[in-house]
Design a binder for these strands. Structure first.
Length: 204
DNA sequence: CGTTTTTGACCGGCGC
DNA sequence: GCGCCGGTCAAAAACG
């Protein structure tokens, strides 16, 4: 992991320049909680459609019309984002709202999610992809907000959430949702390698 | 001036 | 039906 920690100082071309970070991955963090995603994903033929960029663009076009939000929202949920609250368990939601709700007989498929914790001074880890922030929400029982990011590569629908644990504010929890449909944009040898390894181990 | 962030509004799901 | 909650939208502001 030494090489990993050494990899961070060179990033900074993106938005906020970040100082050197010493980080430790804790890969043991959340595997159990997300295993269900892998199961559902494995037998899913629709998964490719979820990544379809045409579809996404259509949605965006429709959304441009301010008169009709609600209807389109439903449409979007129908195709793209089925219940995506499955990550609550580890995100300190004591309310229990993070439970996985799958409607009975519902074939909606979740994208695979993969979470890991990083001990880091900064929230935004440079993983080589370009992300655009699209939301931030206060987290219950935490003084730190949760930030929502989407991959900016056209047609790539991958999202991630970043939040700092209130329990241990030195730890950043990053949750990836979906799979990148394109090569990494800014190769970061060590981090990319680690991510690849994680995906092998966790099959997400 | 194009891209990204901020931030309040909005939405669907869920529990009561 | 209502209120809460997590997630998303989108206009405006900020940034480079």
């Amino acid at each position: 992991m030494n090489s990993f920690t050494a990899s961070f100082p060179y990033n900074s071309s993106s938005s906020t320049s970040q100082t050197a970070v010493s980080s430790h991955l804790s890969l043991d963090a959340t595997n159990d909680d997300y295993s269900y995603d892998h199961a559902t994903y494995s037998n899913d033929d629709n998964y490719e459609q979820l990544e379809d960029d045409d579809h996404d663009q259509n949605l965006r076009l429709i959304r441009k019309n301010p008169n009709r939000r609600s209807g389109e929202q439903a449409l979007l949920d129908d195709h793209v984002s089925p219940t995506n609250s499955g990550l609550g368990n580890d995100l300190n939601s004591a309310s229990g709202s993070g439970t996985i709700h799958v409607k009975k007989g519902d074939k909606k498929i979740r994208k695979p999610k993969c979470a890991f914790q990083t001990r880091s001074q900064v929230d935004i880890l440079d993983d080589g992809y370009r992300w655009r922030k699209y939301g931030q929400k206060a987290v219950k029982n935490s003084k730190f907000p949760r930030s929502y990011y989407r991959c900016t590569y056209q047609g790539c629908n991958v999202k991630k959430q970043v939040q700092r644990l209130s329990k241990d504010e030195g730890v950043v929890l990053t949750t990836y949702e979906g799979t990148h449909s394109h090569p990494i944009e800014k190769p970061n040898d060590n981090f990319e390698h680690i991510l690849t390894q994680m995906q092998i181990y966790s099959s997400c």
